[in-house]
Design a protein around this nucleic acid. Structure first.
Lengths: 192, 192
DNA sequence: AGTATTATTGATCAATCGTTCAAGAATAGG
DNA sequence: CCTATTCTTGAACGATTGATCAATAATACT
């Protein structure tokens, strides 16, 4: 039985994700998505649910494809931190559309989102802070940081720097600005 | 001749500013403003022009009332920088609505705004960077910073930290997080 | 082949958006 | 008081929003 779906939900989701990323949630209409994908409203709704569910799926996809993948692993912890900042600075500099980061963009669009969407964003912020905390803890164990190093304060300061870079990137994409923000964050390793 | 206006445009502008600050531009409708102020659409439009002009006036008001006023002056330059970060951390912590900063919120809402509005935002970002650059330059002249201190890199890194703090504040308002971001920014003075 | 099940289509829904406008009300000069 | 000018009111505009639905088409099992 059953007629089979004629479009690839993953391709369509990728297109929707990019629209949300570029223009934001409120500023992207279902009509925009219909036009960009060529899929009619009925099909879209039966495949993804309503607009918010579609967005959450796009957000999940973004997390897998751009967020988690970008975090370095299996290297010396301080290198992981440094490389992540440099990677993000480079990624932001080379995006002519200045989309920034979908997660941070969504966090700033607070009032347009449901509590469940905001909970997902909260988790991602926690994940960022944990990335720093875990690497700093390990670096301390490895003797790469002094015993007096304040891991918690530095992890939170670095969270601020990442968010700052990704937010600034929406208005400025010059390598000097973004590189300086990265350099400032890395400098925290020598003074924290 | 002429009938005189029955409402105080400044009071109405303050209400509109707070709505835009709280909910963002796209997410605040003219109907919301009509309801919050009690002023009918026609009067609103004749007093302020269209929605975008009203927003720009609200933005100008915010700049005067919250932005420029918050920047310390007439003190030792490094103290100015430190006090600004501490002031912002405190202000963000004590706002139960977590509105963040209207300027940064607007910067993140890019796609909803006209080029002329974005130009205003650009100017404010430049103003922030200049605040740091000028104070760092002066501190260097005063001998409070070593001659090797990289003013430009640090000014840009601090821009990132401010924006990061104001963006993070939309999701987290705990004193530890915001205080750590401030501390991280100030630490740049000892390593830049 | 027949039937049950699901997908696609695109017109259409009510609600809301930013904005306008004719009507009535208030003022100041003559 | 009369008139010219401006302000206020609130209904109404066309456009757009997210979402639905009946009609039609395609599939897979019996």
């Amino acid at each position: 039985m059953v007629r089979q779906r004629e479009f690839d939900t993953d391709e369509v989701l990728a297109i929707a994700m990019n629209l949300f990323w570029q223009r934001g949630y409120t500023n992207t209409s279902m009509k925009d998505i219909v036009q960009a994908t060529g899929i009619q409203p009925g099909s879209l709704y039966s495949a993804f649910g309503d607009k918010e569910k579609l967005f959450q799926q796009a957000l999940r996809r973004y997390t897998q494809e751009f967020f988690r993948t970008s975090m370095p692993r299996h290297r010396p912890p301080l290198e992981c931190i440094q490389h992540w900042f440099e990677h993000l600075a480079k990624a932001m500099t080379s995006d002519p559309k200045q989309k920034g980061c979908l997660i941070i963009n969504t966090a700033m669009e607070r009032e347009s989102h449901s509590p469940s969407t905001l909970a997902i964003i909260e988790d991602r912020l926690d994940e960022i802070e944990s990335f720093f905390r875990q690497n700093l803890d390990q670096a301390k164990l490895d003797g790469d940081l002094p015993q007096s190093f304040e891991v918690d304060v530095t992890a939170k300061a670095m969270l601020g720097s990442v968010v700052g870079m990704l937010a600034v990137a929406r208005m400025r994409r010059d390598a000097q600005t973004l590189g300086s923000i990265a350099a400032g964050a890395i400098a925290l390793l020598r003074s924290g």
